[in-house]
Amino acid sequence: MSENYEPNIVAFLCNWCSYAGADLAGTSRVHYPANIQVIRVMCSGRVNPLYVMNALQQGADGVLISGCHPGDCHYMEGNFYARRRMGMLKDLMEFVGVDPKRFHMSWVSASEGHKWKEVVEKTVEEAREAGPFEGFRRRQIDW
């Protein structure tokens, strides 16, 4: 790992809470690492496990999924489903040898700009520890 390695993180943020939370962090001039590439989805429950797989295949070093706090989902229960699925996915990925430090999930509400900063810092820090992802990334293979 080179000295100035910067992890590349893909973040799936729910439209109603986490995306607004990240927006608030921006408007409040909160500084957080710039390694995050945000993809807005309507709900964390919409995140298909294959999104995560594809992100890792295509060069992400870590994935973050963020949604509303349990009970606050705009669609009442989307984040509950997401919690179940992503919990399972995390176990499965760890089982096949993907570092759990590459995969995170968080609850960030629209008013939690500061929490968003903490979440990103933690995610980036852990992904940095895990190093560049080489596992089943497409370009690692004779593509």
């Binding site: 496990p49 399972m88 096949v96 293979i141």
Partner: peptide, 13 residues
């Protein structure tokens, strides 16, 4: 290996 992993993880999931 890359696509096979994606397939097998998707299947297991």
């Amino acid at each position: 290996f890359s696509e096979n992993t994606a397939f097998n993880i998707a299947r297991a999931f």
